[in-house]
């Protein structure tokens, strides 16, 4: 088999993985810090795509949609935390799970009522239409942009968590919220911000995926399943795990598509099964951790 074809295939795997990483990241951060399994994550991804599309058509520019939709939907996420999730802290892990599961139905139906159940076109931003000649083949400019943007978001996120005071508080809060409260930190505000960040990342994933797929009310359900697979492979709550597993899943899908295309979807679940058999806590997960 041609080497350039394999390299092209790797590249499309990385682009696919980039979207997986960004969606799994929000899911894993919220679980790692808050112990909440957010089943509305896929629906919020979809809401993000619609918000991005709406804001882009309102302002006439994709870039405003890309910037504003995650912020707005992130704020909406904070509202969800404040009004709904907050009441369930300290209770069984099933309670927020069921709540967000119900919420996802409401969000999907809401979008069906407002925008209809047909798909809506989300045009690629004009600056990124078309393909770039890489010498060995052509690759869509937009997908290259997605890879770059996700890399930047990851870098900013890592720097914030590791190098700033806020990051320190967040990391400490995840490890021992009680001590943080004793030290005079308002842990409720930290959790509010974290949930907002998680939802904002879901929305960012939605806006980024919009121009690659058609935007429709059900677009989040498959994404939710993929994001869960990635977080389970990477280890629930692990940020590094989400990044490594996201890219691993994207590249596996892509390479399997080259040799056995009909197996492309199953490979993700097979990978999960293998990882669970060998390392039940996931690649970067901590054994026995519940929340």
């Amino acid at each position: 088999m041609d080497l350039s074809l394999i390299i092209m295939q790797l590249l499309s795997g990385i682009a696919l993985g980039a979207v997986l990483v960004i969606t799994a990241l929000g899911l894993t951060i919220v679980f790692g810090m808050l112990g909440v399994v957010n089943f509305a994550h896929g629906a919020l991804f979809m809401i993000g795509a619609y918000a991005g599309l709406y804001l882009a058509s309102l302002t006439g520019s994709f870039w405003w949609g890309l910037l504003l939709a995650p912020i707005l939907i992130g704020a909406f996420g904070m509202l969800i935390e404040l009004v709904l999730i907050r009441r369930l802290y300290g209770r069984s892990i099933d309670d927020p799970l069921l709540l967000t599961f119900g919420l996802s139905y409401i969000l999907v139906e809401g979008v069906r009522i407002v925008f209809g159940s047909d798909g809506i076109p989300f045009p690629t931003p004009p600056q990124l239409v078309g393909v770039l000649d890489l010498g060995i083949g052509f690759f869509p400019r937009y997908r290259l942009f997605v890879i770059a943007l996700v890399a930047v978001v990851l870098l900013v996120l890592w720097l914030t968590l590791e190098k700033t005071r806020i990051g320190l508080i967040v990391r400490a809060g995840a490890r021992d919220p009680t001590i943080m409260q004793v030290l005079g930190v308002d842990i409720g505000r930290v959790w509010l911000a974290i949930f907002g960040l998680g939802v904002g990342l879901a929305a960012l994933g939605g806006v980024l995926a919009g121009p690659m797929r058609s935007v429709n009310p059900e677009m989040g359900s498959l994404v939710l399943a993929e994001a869960f697979v990635v977080t389970v492979i990477g280890g629930l709550g692990s940020i590094v795990g989400a990044v490594v597993a996201g890219l691993m899943v994207g590249i596996s899908i892509s390479l399997v598509a080259l040799f056995a295309p009909e197996m492309a979807t199953i490979v993700m679940f097979a990978l999960m099964a293998i990882v669970l058999l060998i390392r039940p806590q996931g690649l970067f997960g901590v054994r026995g951790r519940t929340a």
Partner: peptide
């Protein structure tokens, strides 16, 4: 011929081979 799974959201992984 490339067979793809029913209901797939992403087809990018099939494109390089189809082009080749």
């Amino acid at each position: 011929e490339i067979l793809h799974p029913f209901g797939a959201a992403d087809y990018s992984t099939f494109m390089p081979r189809l082009m080749s």
